[in-house]
């Protein structure tokens, strides 16, 4: 019944969203952060995190040359180390999808395109539709759309819902990630509510942020979204993916996020099919930690390429 809810149906669905206690949420996170991830578990975690990265460039100054460099890095994270995974995807603006698609060839790395007037979402629906179709026509495997936060905050849930449902329909086989820009939402209750709304509208992934607004992927926001995914799974058996984006720049944070996924959702989500990090600088920190684990020596940024 995804994507077809009437206003009363949508209202009753959202009425079921549980309230979220912020302080209790923080305490749960503290418990997870107190865990010690060491040795082989750490190596495995670092590799896992690398494989889950959506390597991202989303700047006004992006050019085909820059995107091609990023795509090379995506395929060659650190060739000095043997047997490293590649990242999961490269994430770019629609205009760069064609470039990325070609640069990545048959590497298996996906091309994700932001859309729907990223990052603000402040454009007529027709424009958002064209934006998305353009990315799809150029071969995007995944669409990272933004929701209309203004409409959501003003209580026009049906509008937000219909928009997501319509984009989902356009996507066909491409996977749809729905960005909430949680830094613009007021509370964890809102985060939970919009998660439930987006999942009902057909999101394949839910994603915290554009990376343009602070705070971005904070632990409380991510935990709240994982809670929505878990409840949906328990009710329907359907898995929804999760993508925190923005703010996760260190290995330590990434590993803690993965542990949170393991404890809240279960190990089934520990793959890049269901979990992604939207990040640019995270990759090199993971690589440096990985080398540190291998060699026992603390690393210098000068030895890791910066694309």
């Amino acid at each position: 019944m995804l994507g077809n809810l009437s206003t009363p149906e949508l209202s009753s669905l959202l009425a079921l969203s549980p309230s979220i206690d912020q302080i209790g949420t923080n305490e749960r996170i503290t418990r997870i952060q107190a865990r010690s991830i060491k040795g082989a578990a750490k190596m495995q975690g670092l590799r896992m995190a690398l494989s889950m990265i959506d390597l991202t460039t989303l700047e006004g100054k992006d050019t085909p040359a820059k995107v091609r460099q990023l795509c090379f890095k995506a395929q060659h994270l650190h060739d000095q180390a043997a047997d490293l995974p590649t990242v999961a995807a490269v994430c770019v603006y629609p205009t760069m999808v064609g470039v990325a698609k070609k640069a990545l060839g048959n590497s298996g790395i996906k091309v994700a395109s932001v859309s729907t007037a990223f990052p603000s979402g402040q454009a007529p629906f027709e424009v958002k539709k064209l934006d998305t179709l353009y990315a799809l026509d150029n071969g995007a495997d995944e669409i990272d759309m933004v929701v209309s936060r203004g409409r959501f905050l003003s209580g026009d849930y049906q509008f937000v819902y219909d928009e997501i449902a319509a984009i989902k329909e356009l996507c066909s086989t491409a996977r749809l990630k729905v960005i909430f820009e949680t830094g613009e939402l007021d509370s964890l209750d809102q985060v939970r509510k919009i998660s439930d709304l987006a999942i009902a509208a057909g999101a394949d992934f839910i994603k915290t942020s554009t990376g343009k607004i602070q705070p971005a992927a904070t632990f409380p926001v991510v935990l709240t979204m994982l809670g929505a995914i878990k409840d949906h799974f328990d009710k329907t058996g359907q898995m929804i993916g999760m993508k925190p984006a923005g703010g996760i720049s260190s290995s330590k944070l990434a590993l803690q996020h993965l542990l949170m996924v393991k404890e809240v959702l279960g190990e089934a989500w520990l793959s890049n099919e269901w979990y992604r990090f939207g990040a640019s600088s995270l990759a090199n920190d993971l690589l440096m930690q990985y080398q540190k684990q291998l060699t026992g020596k603390y690393q210098s940024a000068a030895y890791f390429s910066i694309d």
């Binding site: 865990r35 991830i37 520990l270 793959s271 890049n272």
Partner: peptide, 10 residues
């Protein structure tokens, strides 16, 4: 796509 299933802390 890379798939992991067991990840246990030491």
């Amino acid at each position: 796509m890379m798939s992991q299933t067991n990840w246990n802390l030491e």
